[in-house]
Computed example of a mutant assay.
Amino acid sequence: MTYEEILKVIFPYLEGVDLASCMAVCKQWRDIARNDYFWKCLCAKRWPSICKRPNPPTLTYYKLYQTFCRRQHSRTLLPPRLSFNDLEFFIDIWNEDRLLLSDVVPGPVLETGIKILPQGICNMLRFHLEGPEYKMTLPVEPRFTVPMNQTVSVSVLVWRKDSNRVARIIDKSMFDYIDRTAHRAMAFDYLEFSPSHPFISGIRAWISLLFMEDGNEGVLDVFGIEMDFCDAATSKEEVLWLLDMLDWK
């Protein structure tokens, strides 16, 4: 059996990534590995029904496999139509019937976030806030304390100046999950989107109280707020696109 015949016996047993790697070894391997029979075998494993046709639905099975099995790279978004300069956020936090915080926050303030972290925060929270992922944060001034055994809720509306319309982000959601290790108390609500985007659903807005130990057992010393849409948006541009699609009224 010749060297080329050995390769033709082995190649049909390879996975697509491995067969593609063989094409980069040398010209001889590339020419053999491009044989459409090998790629038809791979397509037959993934989509058996597509090989029942006498001819591939594309030019070659290699092209078919390459198109639908290659790793998707992150795509560059078009510039969002909305900017943080166009937005104001209305944030209200309640401790049962007592109003803890009621603030109108300009978009650029939430975009800039907490510039200097206070002394005494735990390492896990510091690592989270200083990480590369985009996040919207707001310092709480003056700070407030929350007993862990009491109900705390939050509402967030957003107003856009360019159209003078308002959308709801969070509607009286409870901070019912407290992560003592990461020093965050979290609440969420599902976003409501415009009827012009009927197939978008199930995306949550998360808001967190960032706290330090108060020294009193069961009391949270809140120094900041964080809001994110990590189900769907992990960059500033993605957040703005997401907000633009809300049900503005």
Rank of each mutant, 00 (worst) to 15 (best):
D103F: 04
K115F: 02
E111R: 15
W47R: 03
P147M: 07
L59R: 07
K45D: 12
N164T: 04
D189W: 05
D189N: 10
D171L: 05
T151D: 10
T112E: 13
Q66V: 05
T76N: 06
R71C: 02
F127V: 06
T60W: 02
Y177D: 15
H73T: 08
D97V: 05
D97G: 01
F175Q: 06
I50P: 02
V152S: 14
S153D: 01
S74E: 13
Q150I: 08
T137A: 08
G120D: 00
E96N: 15
F144T: 13
Y190G: 03
D171E: 13
L78G: 03
D162W: 02
N55R: 15
P147H: 11
P118I: 07
S102T: 04
Q150V: 12
P108M: 05
L125T: 01
K63N: 12
P54W: 03
Q150G: 03
N123V: 07
T67I: 09
V158W: 11
E96M: 06
T181Y: 11
D103G: 00
L77V: 04
N55P: 02
V140F: 03
P147V: 08
Y61E: 08
Q119F: 09
S74V: 12
P106N: 02
L125E: 00
P106Q: 03
V105G: 06
K45N: 14
S74A: 08
T58E: 02
I116T: 15
L129K: 09
I114A: 02
V104I: 10
L100R: 08
L59M: 09
N95P: 00
K135W: 05
Y177H: 10
L99D: 01
R143L: 05
F89D: 10
M174N: 05
P79T: 08
D86K: 15
Y134A: 14
K115Y: 03
F89P: 12
R81Y: 12
P142K: 12
P118W: 03
Y177P: 00
A187H: 02
R168W: 06
P139Q: 14
M148L: 06
L138M: 14
I178G: 03
F127W: 08
V166F: 15
T181G: 06
Q66E: 11
Y134S: 11
E133W: 12
D176N: 11
T60F: 03
L101A: 07
D97N: 10
L59K: 07
E141T: 12
R165P: 00
G113V: 07
G120M: 09
N164E: 15
D176K: 00
M124P: 00
V166Q: 11
Y177I: 14
R70F: 09
W47N: 05
T145V: 06
W94T: 05
V166P: 00
E111F: 05
K52F: 00
Y134K: 07
K115L: 12
R81H: 13
G113Y: 03
N95C: 09
A185T: 01
V158T: 07
N164A: 15
Y190E: 13
R81S: 15
R71H: 12
H183V: 01
Y61C: 06
S163Y: 04
P139T: 12
L110R: 14
L101R: 05
Y62W: 11
G120C: 08
R165W: 04
T76C: 04
T137I: 09
N85D: 08
I178V: 15
L110D: 03
Y190F: 12
N55L: 14
V156Y: 09
F84E: 00
T145M: 10
E130C: 13
D86E: 00
D162H: 14
R168D: 13
D103R: 10
V158P: 01
P108V: 07
F89R: 04
P48L: 05
